[in-house]
């Protein structure tokens, strides 16, 4: 595998290898010296066309723990009419000798275009409303850690599926890993032809919750209201928000996830976000381990992840 652009490109064994490697690498985070020499001399560029401090620092921490050199390249206002084109940016990175490019872009599919112009590995850190594969990997990693398995796990994903790259990557990856996914959203926030996806679809959250081992709440942007996707924030919250009363409908060991950043009081109540069921903080920590695994597997070559004899 040269690139990681879509979670749909991962086979079952690819995905399990990434999760297992992440599990090994997670030990590094528990050490006093949180650093491995694995990617010494390699250059990873964080190419961010969209502000996302949390994703960028997660990738940056992952690359640095593997001793890679990290260059942060932030491009503001990336409309084609102003400034440098993606192709020229790619040629610049190529000239700098980037071994891996982590790209966050507001246009769906931008990583595919980038991959045509650079020789290094392209890692999709979120492209438009298309995919965010490392988010799906860290979500699967978190589920497996908390619940011990992924096969036949019942995962309910709630919210703005239409505009969610997290949902697309999760549906693809969880299906590959044998979980059963149900999407719950108002019909306006589900894509046309969603019935072709390998998952169930429902409009009613209350009836889906008792059958969920995992409930993943998606961020809903308030500007969707202006575009008439739903009448008001209050109505959305009432029908699709997860509050304490709704959370009580979940089975005892079910977990609540959110990819962040949260709109507390909109899709998720504060008491839910801060409850013991919530994995939101763990997801952030797991993100670093999973991204280390991805960088190691794409860029690391033949060396063992944890170095010789160290297990």
């Amino acid at each position: 595998m040269l690139h990681l652009i879509s979670a749909a490109d991962l086979s079952h064994s690819d995905a399990v290898l990434i999760l297992d490697t992440a599990e090994e690498l997670a030990q590094v985070g528990d050490r006093s010296v949180k650093k491995l020499p694995t990617l010494r001399g390699r250059t990873v560029v964080n190419l961010f066309f969209e502000d996302s401090t949390r994703t960028r620092i997660s990738f940056e921490a992952a690359a640095k723990r593997l001793s890679a050199d990290v260059l942060n390249f932030a491009v503001k206002g990336s409309s084609v009419s102003k400034g440098e084109s993606l192709k020229d940016t790619a040629l610049t990175l190529e000239a700098m000798g980037a071994d891996g490019v982590v790209i966050r872009h507001n246009a769906s599919g931008a990583p595919y275009r980038l991959a045509e112009w650079v020789r290094g590995s392209v890692i999709n850190a979120g492209d438009g409303t298309h995919e965010h594969p490392t988010q799906a990997l860290l979500d699967a990693f978190t589920m497996r850690r908390r619940l011990g398995r992924l096969a036949d796990l019942r995962v309910t994903i709630v919210g703005d599926v239409l505009h969610s790259r997290v949902a697309r990557s999760n549906v693809a990856l969880l299906h590959t890993l044998g979980a059963q996914v149900t999407l719950v959203a108002p019909p306006t926030l589900l894509p046309v032809a969603v019935e072709t996806w390998p998952c169930e679809v429902a409009y009613d959250l209350d009836s889906a919750l008792p059958k969920s081992d995992v409930v993943m709440m998606l961020r809903v942007q308030r500007e969707r209201m202006q575009a008439a996707y739903f009448p008001s924030a209050r109505e959305y919250s009432r029908r699709y928000g997860l509050d304490a009363e709704r959370m009580a409908r979940l089975p005892d060991d079910a977990i609540v996830m959110h990819p962040g950043p949260m709109n507390r009081g909109m899709e998720i109540a504060a008491e839910v976000a801060d409850s013991p069921r919530s994995t939101i903080v763990e997801q952030v920590a797991n993100g670093v381990s999973v991204r280390m695994a991805v960088l190691y597997l794409l860029l690391g070559g033949s060396e063992p992840a944890l170095g010789g004899g160290e297990r």
């Binding site: 749909a8 769906s108 599919g109 409303t129 298309h130 995919e131 894509p191 046309v192 032809a193 969603v194």
Partner: peptide, 18 residues
Amino acid sequence: AQMNEGAVSARLGLAGWP
């Protein structure tokens, strides 16, 4: 709108053109 609205646009995350 970016492409025909259907199964492909849904998967690619491109705004559909119904």
